[in-house]
Each structure stands twice: as structure tokens, then as C-alpha cells.
Design a protein around this nucleic acid. Sequence first.
DNA 1: CAGTATCCTACCCGATACTG
DNA 2: CAGTATCGGGTAGGATACTG
Lengths: 116, 116
Amino acid sequence: MEEQEPKMLEFRGKQYPCCASLTMGVIGGKWKTVILFHLMNNTLRYSELRKAMPTVTERTLSLQLKDLEEDGLISRTVYTPKPPLKVEYALTEFGKTLIPLIQAVAAWGDYAVSCA
Amino acid sequence: MEEQEPKMLEFRGKQYPCCASLTMGVIGGKWKTVILFHLMNNTLRYSELRKAMPTVTERTLSLQLKDLEEDGLISRTVYTPKPPLKVEYALTEFGKTLIPLIQAVAAWGDYAVSCA
DNA sequence: CAGTATCCTACCCGATACTG
DNA sequence: CAGTATCGGGTAGGATACTG
């Protein structure tokens, strides 16, 4: 008798009360959808992501990329054995299942701006 | 020369660096999509929302409903002049433009659970 | 180039009690 | 019934300096 309701959903060790909250738990936060949006059509290097998102700090970008990688949505590939490093980020096959959702998120943002 | 980049989007007084982040700013957070998900097909009273979301606190539910109302996504209608009150929440026409997005969010949550 | 390490702040959100 | 008031903790995220 620890849980209030038995209908919890689980994903990667976390519990969610609803399918919608699960999705938001994975792609929520201030920057994750922005990262996914930029990786939707392109594989990008770390520095390219920084240029695409000039208002995020290095620390935050790094942490969010790590989160997304741990959730299996993006892949991180290192191309150089020693510094200067070349690292590329790309959507995984699982991450690509989010593309329609990311597109809908982006489209609604544009729509809302056009209304206001 | 106050902004770093001139390409900021604005919605209801807030600035966003990208259309995707705007959407997440409006429907992000832990509970907003869950509320919208439950209001997607039904008009619901406050107490009905509470029953549908047993793990949210009254304070948080109240604050999130107010946020959604201020952003024009839901309407709040009071049916009684004095306590006990009857209040119903429903999506506005603008809020209904989010339905395909909410459905995609919910569908991906179900999909992710089925993968795990 | 691609990140960590440290430090710090804001605010989101929970718990509980009270009110029109 | 449908909320607010008050208090407080946890953590997401920012600023800056440093490293392989």
C-alpha cells in the first residue's frame, strides 16, 4: 500500500501517472525539444548545436544531451582519438519516432506566434 | 543591443529562442499536458479533474489551471452564485488547436511504454 | 573542440491548513 | 465545492573558470 493508484506507467525507472506526463518527462524541460528540433533533419556537432542555440549555457547543453542519450533518443559519436575532438550527435531510430511530435510542437509554436 | 540574437519569438509577454521552445513554455511543466489531455474530450469540474489526477496537489492544480486560462487555452465557467460552487473547465477554440499535439504526446507515451 | 567543475539562484511543486 | 495561504524542499538551469 505505497502507491495511491495502481495505474502508474513506467519508463526507464521513472513512474508517470499518465501517458502524456511520460512523454513530457522525457522531452520536457527548457531545452530538450529544441535540441531534438535541431537534430531532426541534421546530424550536428557540439559546436554547431551551440551556434544553433546561442542562449543555452555549455553546462546545460551538455547535461541535456547526456539525458537524451541515456533515454536512447540520440547517439553520440566521437571521431577523433585525441583533442581537438570531433563529436557528432544524431537521432537514434527510437528518437526518430519523435519526429512527428517535434514537428507538431514546432508547428504549433509558429501558429501561436501568428495568432498573437 | 540588449538581446544576443534578433530572432526571438514572443508570446504573451515572454520571449523564446525557437518555435519549439515556445510551445514547451506554454504546455510544459509537470501537469499542463495532463490537464489538457483530460479536457481534450470532456468539459470537467474541478473535482472531476482532481479525481482524474489523484497525485497532483490542490495548490498545483489550481495554479496550472490559472496559467492555462491566462494563456487562453482553457475557459473557466462558474455556474453558482454562492458556495457550494460549481465550476467547469473546458478547452477554448484556441486550446482546441492543441488537440492533435496532445494526442501525439499521449500516443508517444503509450508507444514508449510498449517498447520498454 | 568538446566538454567538466563549482557555485549559486529561482522557481516549480508538494504538504497542510484554512476560506467564500 | 472550489479553491487560497503559508511554508518549505528539491532541482533545473544559469555564470564562470578550467581541462583532455
